[in-house]
Simulated scan of single mutants.
Amino acid sequence: MSVPAPRRTLPGPPARRPDAHHRARRVTVALAALGLVAATAAAAPPAPAAPTGCGDLVRGQLCLRGPVGADGTYTATYRRDEPAGPDEIVVRLGYQRKNDRITAFPGWFGTRRTQGGAVGLSGRVEMLRDECIRGVMEQAQTIYVTKWSCS
């Protein structure tokens, strides 16, 4: 008695696992949710520049705002808590960057006198993705800084 040779057929689709239907449903639901989130984000107004940090000082607040971890325009602001008077002060505003290897010297946007107790200066900063940044203010040879902000 002879045994017939096995039949050769073209390979078909791989056998489906019993949970494949449930996985396909989960993927479809996840994609639909992503589409809904994307549509909501597109309809929402653009987000403001991410704050990179504020620091409360004894008589005011120092802030630095900008796109943390990316090149862009950063703005350093200082606002005094006490009412503005004839004692407006001159401040130098800027930023400082660091990564896991080095902390850079401060970069300065400029020097200006407060008006109404507040002052703000901006400038373009080139940052790498792995860098952190903080605001820096110099007033009467004293340096003030905010906390580090990292992306």
Rank of each mutant, 00 (worst) to 15 (best):
M1S: 14
P4E: 01
P11V: 13
P11C: 10
P18R: 05
H21I: 03
H21G: 11
R23S: 05
R25D: 09
V29F: 06
A30V: 02
G35Y: 01
A38M: 08
A39D: 00
T40N: 00
A41F: 02
A41P: 00
A43W: 04
A47V: 05
A47T: 01
P48M: 04
P48W: 03
G55R: 03
G55M: 01
R59Y: 13
P67Q: 08
V68I: 07
D71C: 04
T75M: 06
A76Q: 06
R79V: 15
R80D: 13
D81S: 13
E82A: 15
A84W: 13
G85F: 11
D87Q: 14
I89M: 11
V91M: 11
Y95R: 12
N99H: 04
N99W: 05
R101E: 07
I102P: 00
T103P: 01
T111Y: 11
T111A: 15
R112C: 09
R113C: 10
T114V: 12
A118H: 11
L121H: 11
M127D: 07
L128I: 07
R129D: 10
C132A: 09
G135N: 09
G135K: 09
M137W: 13
Q141R: 15
I143V: 15
K147Y: 12
S149H: 06
C150H: 04
C150D: 00
